[in-house]
């Protein structure tokens, strides 16, 4: 199916916080209580509509364990959005957010939109991190924040879609250079630079004689 934009996302956070379950709930609308461990990365895609335009989300779900981080880092680069997930029933996963954030900021492009997600909101009785703490962390670091439940699907759609809206707004404001795929954004076939009459026709980057060197 054709799309106007393609956004690349990455999902990061400690192991066992529900990253793969969030992805599965968003792409397949189902919940798997015991999910296989993610080794390396898993991939998912879904089409959404923003401002009447079809937007394809390409989502990279990463392994949470430290040992896999060197692999994970290579995925930051081409990402327009990141979901940074912790588990509201495990404080250690919240305490590690700073490390994740530093990692993400260091290896991604500076415009990447980051959504902070406190997952497992259905487990209210076992809550270990207050909602206000999540909000405060997000405010302090300039992130969007939501609490979700991959189990009940609460706020899952919203988390992925709100992130996309934020990216879309940044595109409208001209913050993102949409002709640079390293930003994690690609134009759909009908919006390609050639069709839009841009100068980058043919993608012969070398012949453009840019003044960017």
């Amino acid at each position: 199916m054709s799309y106007a934009y393609l956004f690349k996302y990455i999902i990061i956070g400690d192991t066992g916080v529900g990253k793969s379950c969030l992805l599965l709930q968003f792409t397949d609308k189902r919940f798997q209580p015991v999910h296989d461990l993610t080794i390396g990365v898993e991939f998912g895609a879904r089409m959404i509509t923003i401002d009447g335009k079809q937007v394809k989300l390409q989502i990279w779900d990463t392994a949470g364990q430290e040992a896999f981080r060197s692999i994970t880092r290579s995925y930051y680069r081409g990402a327009a959005g990141a979901l940074l997930v912790y588990d509201i029933t495990r404080r250690d996963t919240f305490n590690h957010l700073t490390t994740w954030l530093e990692d993400a900021r260091q290896h991604s492009n500076s415009n990447m939109v980051i959504m902070l997600i406190g997952n497992k909101s259905d487990l209210e009785s076992r809550r270990d991190v207050k909602r206000e703490e999540g909000e405060a962390f997000a405010r302090e670091h300039g992130l969007i924040f939501m609490e979700t439940s991959a189990k009940t699907a609460a706020n899952v759609e919203e988390a992925f879609i709100n992130t996309a809206k934020e990216i879309y707004e940044k595109i409208q404001e001209g913050v993102f250079d949409i002709n640079n795929e390293a930003n994690g954004i690609k134009l759909g076939p009908q919006h390609s630079p050639a069709a839009a009459g841009g100068m980058a026709a043919g993608g012969l980057g070398g012949s453009q004689g840019g003044g960017c060197c």
């Binding site: 296989d36 461990l37 080794i39 390396g40 990365v41 991939f43 692999i71 290579s74």
Partner: peptide, 15 residues
């Protein structure tokens, strides 16, 4: 291959 065969080979196809 890092996207799919990384898991295939590391886990000897067990997943």
């Amino acid at each position: 291959p890092q996207y799919f065969a990384f898991r295939w080979m590391t886990l000897l196809l067990s997943q």
